[in-house]
């Protein structure tokens, strides 16, 4: 398995709809409604999606929302800042769990 993630697979997303098409259609309808401009602009949503793509480390989403952010008019400075937000939240989430360590240790320590 030389490439687990194939770049062109993103274009095959629709094939997921072959099975459980009703669920797929519902998902896609929801997805498109979420990503359409609303209280947040399309540009802001693309930047959020880019940050989340890094948090969930999905290569397809990173490709899609790098392009999506550029096509919404964002620049690399804004996109990198968005990634730092994901990084900060991921890092902070790890760190705050340090308290669980302290709590667990306290529970079994004299």
């Amino acid at each position: 398995m030389s490439h687990y993630y194939e770049e062109r697979d993103l274009e095959r997303f629709g094939e997921i709809g072959k099975y459980c098409p009703d669920l797929y259609e519902r998902f896609m309808g929801y997805y498109q409604a979420v990503m359409a401009a609303g209280a947040l602009s399309g540009r802001e949503k693309a930047l959020i999606a880019l940050a989340v793509a890094h948090a969930v480390q999905c290569p397809y989403c990173i490709d899609a929302y790098t392009r999506g952010s550029l096509e919404a008019g964002s620049n690399l400075e804004e996109m990198t800042e968005a990634i730092h937000v994901a990084t900060a939240i991921r890092g902070g989430a790890a760190l705050i769990h340090g308290l669980q360590v302290h709590n667990a240790a306290a529970k079994i320590s004299i």
Binding site: A37, R43, E71, A72, G73
Partner: peptide, 17 residues
């Protein structure tokens, strides 16, 4: 015009920016 192999944004929000 885009600075690469991607499509232009919607003009309205980009114009405001």
């Amino acid at each position: 015009n885009p600075a690469g192999a991607y499509f232009p944004p919607e003009p309205g929000p980009l114009e405001a920016l």
